[in-house]
């Protein structure tokens, strides 16, 4: 499966936040999207997911040899094509338990084989399954957000700054979990505000974004050598 983003322009509060973004996300690779706060990373994810609509350009999902136009599709239908979402700040439903958080995303009580699969990838969640979302630590919430995105067995996961605001030890655990998910055949698209060292073990390829424009496309190390990316993302 592939998501083809074709020169999309998205406005937010009257301002162009995405200005002709073109890129490709696939279920067979792990890609980092690197850019400062306000560069348009979250807006890009929200546009792909149909929460925001671009006023120009189009988004196509390629699935089983079929080309599906998702530009004007409802978010829940886009999600059901096989796209999982781990939002910025986790956004765990606070007054639902861990298992209920999974249940609402799945649409019915989660079948035991899916639950087993999730607990194999994220074993820590199993002992927390009756705990309310509001009583989870930041790392536990991030684990749950990833699990919640996995229940519908997506082909691609979109993760918005999944390593941000976590202790180094937790970053390690999450990194390991995401690598395991990648090995299960799920494509990853991960946004990262600028820490190349921590995103490198997770990504095979990187895009750089600044002020709503893609300013780099290539391997992860290369972004630090690229003069345009250095200037626009790090001001070097």
């Amino acid at each position: 499966m592939k998501i083809l983003v074709k020169s999309i322009w998205t406005k937010l509060g009257g301002i162009d936040v995405l200005r002709g973004v073109t890129l490709e996300i696939s279920s067979t690779s792990s890609i980092a999207l690197i850019g400062r706060n306000g560069a348009g990373k979250t807006t890009l994810l929200r546009t792909i997911l149909g929460i925001l609509k671009p006023y120009r350009g189009s988004i196509v999902v390629e699935k089983g040899g079929e080309q599906i136009q998702t530009t004007r599709m409802k978010p829940y239908k886009i999600a059901r094509l096989g796209i999982g979402y781990v939002p910025q700040g986790r956004m765990i439903f606070p007054d639902l338990t861990v298992e209920e958080n999974l249940e609402v995303a799945y649409g019915s009580p989660v079948p035991s084989d899916v639950l087993e699969w999730i607990y194999t990838i994220i074993p820590d969640l199993k002992k927390l399954r009756k705990r309310l979302g509001m009583y989870l630590s930041g790392g536990e919430q991030q684990m749950l957000a990833i699990a919640r995105a996995l229940v519908r067995r997506p082909k691609i996961l979109l993760l918005d700054e999944p390593l941000e605001g976590l202790a180094p030890r937790i970053v390690k655990t999450i990194t390991k979990t995401l690598r395991d998910i990648r090995e299960e055949g799920v494509g990853l698209f991960i946004t990262e505000p600028g820490n190349i060292k921590r995103i490198k073990p997770l990504a095979e390829k990187a895009y750089g974004i600044d002020r709503g424009e893609i300013v780099y496309s290539g391997n992860v190390d290369g972004i630090l050598q690229d003069p345009v990316a250095r200037r626009r993302i790090w001001g070097l």
């Binding site: 149909g50 999600a79 919640r148």
Partner: peptide
């Protein structure tokens, strides 16, 4: 019920609920 819990989830954040595949309409 799942639909009741989904309503509570949508009450917390309808955008996230929809992006996770819930039919918020």
């Amino acid at each position: 019920t799942t639909i009741g819990k989904q309503m509570r989830a949508a009450a917390y954040n309808p955008e996230i609920a929809a992006a996770l595949g819930m039919n918020t309409d």
